[in-house]
Simulated assay, not measured.
Amino acid sequence: MKKAYLILFSALLTFSCSQEEKSSAVGPDGWLEGTNEEKLDEVAHQLGGFSRTMVEVSYRYSELYWAGMDENWDYADHQVEHIIEAMEDGLKRRPSRKASSESFMEETLPMMEDIIQKKDKEEFIKGFQMLTSACNACHAKEGESFIMIQTPENRTSPVRF
């Protein structure tokens, strides 16, 4: 019996080592082509770097502001949760940004969560100003101080409370 397992193991090992990776297109209309490694590289490229993270954070930053102005505290909390998630995902793709974002992630966003729990609009406005300053400080740390964040002036989302 041991001999049969050894022969089977040896055959599987030989087969798997000599097997060439097949390249087949996947996805709608087969847009994702190449070896598995090439496909993973393309998926990573499609996910993008930190600039795509900032697009989502920008949207949620605006929604957070309007949620606070409407005193829609559940929606405000929802936005902070998604800012955290977007930042965490972006930092996985661009770990070199972690040092610059550390105080934002560990101090500023938890502060906003605490303020939202108080359900106090005046407190929220002060906290949001600190959040905005923290965004700009992070941009400066990354050498991108030309990206200056300001309090939103116009609503772009149809979400209302």
Score class of each variant (00 low, 15 high):
residue 3 K to L: 11
residue 7 I to F: 09
residue 8 L to K: 11
residue 8 L to N: 04
residue 10 S to R: 00
residue 13 L to M: 04
residue 16 S to A: 08
residue 16 S to G: 01
residue 17 C to V: 12
residue 17 C to P: 00
residue 18 S to K: 04
residue 18 S to W: 09
residue 21 E to Q: 12
residue 22 K to W: 09
residue 22 K to D: 07
residue 23 S to W: 07
residue 23 S to A: 11
residue 24 S to G: 01
residue 24 S to V: 14
residue 25 A to Y: 13
residue 27 G to W: 07
residue 38 E to L: 03
residue 39 K to H: 05
residue 39 K to P: 02
residue 39 K to D: 05
residue 41 D to G: 03
residue 42 E to N: 08
residue 42 E to P: 00
residue 43 V to H: 01
residue 45 H to E: 14
residue 48 G to Y: 07
residue 48 G to M: 06
residue 49 G to F: 05
residue 50 F to L: 12
residue 51 S to V: 12
residue 53 T to N: 00
residue 53 T to C: 01
residue 54 M to V: 12
residue 55 V to K: 14
residue 57 V to G: 05
residue 59 Y to E: 13
residue 59 Y to K: 13
residue 61 Y to R: 11
residue 63 E to V: 03
residue 65 Y to L: 04
residue 65 Y to E: 03
residue 66 W to Y: 10
residue 73 W to F: 04
residue 74 D to Q: 07
residue 74 D to S: 04
residue 75 Y to P: 00
residue 77 D to L: 02
residue 77 D to Y: 00
residue 78 H to D: 08
residue 78 H to S: 05
residue 78 H to V: 00
residue 79 Q to R: 10
residue 80 V to W: 02
residue 82 H to E: 11
residue 83 I to N: 01
residue 84 I to C: 04
residue 86 A to C: 06
residue 87 M to W: 05
residue 88 E to I: 03
residue 89 D to G: 08
residue 90 G to N: 02
residue 90 G to P: 00
residue 90 G to Q: 00
residue 91 L to G: 02
residue 94 R to E: 10
residue 95 P to S: 04
residue 98 K to V: 11
residue 98 K to H: 07
residue 99 A to T: 13
residue 100 S to A: 15
residue 100 S to D: 12
residue 101 S to L: 15
residue 102 E to F: 08
residue 103 S to E: 13
residue 103 S to A: 13
residue 104 F to C: 05
residue 105 M to S: 06
residue 106 E to G: 09
residue 106 E to C: 07
residue 109 L to F: 06
residue 110 P to Y: 10
residue 111 M to L: 13
residue 114 D to H: 05
residue 114 D to Y: 03
residue 115 I to F: 03
residue 115 I to V: 12
residue 115 I to E: 02
residue 116 I to Q: 01
residue 117 Q to C: 01
residue 118 K to V: 02
residue 119 K to C: 04
residue 122 E to K: 15
residue 122 E to D: 15
residue 123 E to P: 01
residue 124 F to S: 01
residue 125 I to D: 09
residue 126 K to M: 10
residue 126 K to E: 15
residue 128 F to C: 03
residue 130 M to C: 02
residue 131 L to G: 03
residue 132 T to P: 03
residue 132 T to A: 07
residue 134 A to N: 01
residue 134 A to I: 01
residue 135 C to V: 01
residue 136 N to D: 13
residue 137 A to V: 10
residue 138 C to F: 08
residue 138 C to W: 06
residue 140 A to Y: 04
residue 141 K to Y: 08
residue 143 G to P: 07
residue 146 F to K: 13
residue 146 F to C: 05
residue 146 F to W: 15
residue 147 I to D: 11
residue 150 Q to E: 15
residue 151 T to Q: 12
residue 152 P to M: 06
residue 153 E to M: 10
residue 155 R to A: 09
residue 156 T to N: 11
residue 156 T to L: 13
residue 157 S to C: 06
residue 159 V to E: 12
residue 160 R to E: 14
residue 160 R to I: 15
residue 161 F to G: 05
